[in-house]
Simulated scan of single mutants.
Amino acid sequence: MTAYILQRLIQSALVLVAVSVAVFFAVYGIGDPVELLVPPQVSAAERLALIKRLGLDLPVWQQYFTFLVNALKGDLGTSFVHGVPVVSLILARLPATFELVLLSMTGAAVIGIPLGLLAGLNPDSRPSRAIMTGTVIGFSLPSFWKGMMLVLLFSVALGWLPTAGRGETVAFLGIQTSLFTTDGLRHLILPSLNLAIPNMALMIRLVAAGTTEAMTQDYVKFARAKGVRRRRIVGRHVLRNILIPVVTVVGIEFGSLVAFSTITETVFSWPGMGKLLIDSIYQLDRPVVVAYVMLATLLFVAVNFIVDVLYAVLDPRVKLSGDMV
């Protein structure tokens, strides 16, 4: 197991280096941020001073080497636009994104798993067909369109929920959050629902397929032959086995949404990391874009590692395989 963990750590380090090279050279080869940062009336001397201060007068390879050395020290650069370290700028937006993703994934799991079980246990029934048809719709609708329709229905037509913003926040463990205020929760409903719909559809299909397959396995037939109640079979045997792919999806999708919930945050003007990324791209704030992608990659690597560990907890065969590596 130790050798396996070391192997994964080396692989993760190589992934981070490869991503840093690709992103840095791609971002630094597009546009000129000085054109956006410097007013036209500024003198050539002041313009040159700004270029030197930002380090843009150096060759790209040298800029990358400087970035890499500083990154190893935990410094991913300073924002061109905001003038603050990009790590603190991104982390300041993290709580807003995290609470949005947490609420959406919790809702998707709470609703998706029972509906998936219902569809998988009775695959030929009308409710099951209706549920599976709904998953196709949930997959197919674009996020920006769903978001606008939710705003049009619940905010404009019915006037039940606010259209944008984060609402009232309170401090919890030193972090501002919307989860503990009524106004904050009202602002959370629409964007979290917009994020939850496709993930709910994905969970329903995964659970339904796993349930249908599990019900045909020998251990389930043996339990039936022994007279074990259907509810106990589903809860003890079927559900435990189908949770393995569900955990994988929840882990990967959670990391994906934290890193790239850009469309939903833009539609609902949610002050999270995704909106910061979009604004930074428009403003050619290169350090923020590079640091954002690097932190997102690090998040994916960490989530995948945690999912592997959970595999070993849920399935002893994975643990035994890992011990043999």
Rank of each mutant, 00 (worst) to 15 (best):
M148N: 09
T133D: 00
A208G: 07
V290W: 02
L320C: 00
S125F: 07
A130P: 00
K319N: 05
L299G: 05
E253G: 00
A214Q: 13
N304S: 13
F65H: 14
L185K: 04
W145E: 01
K275P: 00
I204E: 08
D75Y: 03
K73I: 00
V15L: 14
Y64P: 07
V136T: 14
V246K: 09
L314G: 12
V238N: 04
T181E: 09
F254N: 04
G107N: 08
L185T: 04
T163H: 00
T106R: 01
L239Y: 05
R232E: 15
T182V: 14
S178L: 00
N304Q: 14
L6I: 15
F80Q: 07
I242L: 11
L37R: 07
V246T: 10
G255T: 12
V293Y: 02
F144G: 01
P123Y: 10
F254A: 13
L310H: 02
V293K: 06
P59F: 07
D218G: 01
P127R: 11
N122L: 02
P59V: 05
V234S: 04
L115E: 09
Q217F: 01
L37K: 03
T181I: 09
L36R: 14
G116K: 11
D218Y: 13
S280G: 06
S261H: 03
V289P: 00
F268T: 12
D32V: 02
A157D: 14
W160D: 06
R166D: 01
G251Y: 03
G107R: 07
M203E: 03
V34R: 11
L76G: 04
V170I: 15
M149S: 09
L68F: 14
L161F: 12
V250M: 14
T266S: 12
P142V: 09
